[in-house]
């Protein structure tokens, strides 16, 4: 697992929950909310899909770690790595 793969995983999830959003030009360093029409209900779905598809738990207090693709990659990488070795 690496950070680019994680960014792609998050983008794939967004494509699934918000098929009407255009994802070709998402800037990894900018907050997702500032470039896409996503609200707190959509972020819940990102969390739920990470849990369902990859067995990763994101506690409610840490949802803000998912605000940009870069922060997703930084925050999720250790979780993916622990998952892979467990």
């Amino acid at each position: 697992m690496n950070k680019d793969k994680i960014k792609q995983i998050v983008l794939d999830i967004i494509a699934e929950i918000a098929p009407d959003e255009v994802l070709t030009d998402v800037k990894p360093e900018i907050r997702l909310r500032d470039q896409l029409d996503l609200d707190s209900m959509d972020f819940l779905d990102i969390v739920m899909e990470l849990r369902k598809q990859h067995g990763i738990d994101v506690p409610e207090g840490e949802y803000r770690e998912l605000e940009s693709l870069d922060s997703c990659a930084n925050y999720l990488l250790p979780k993916f790595e622990t998952g892979a070795t467990a």
Partner: peptide, 16 residues
């Protein structure tokens, strides 16, 4: 996209 109807379709994954 700010309409609640739009949001609920997205949440239920029913294309508007």
């Amino acid at each position: 996209k700010s309409s609640p109807l739009f949001k609920l379709c997205r949440q239920l994954r029913i294309p508007l």
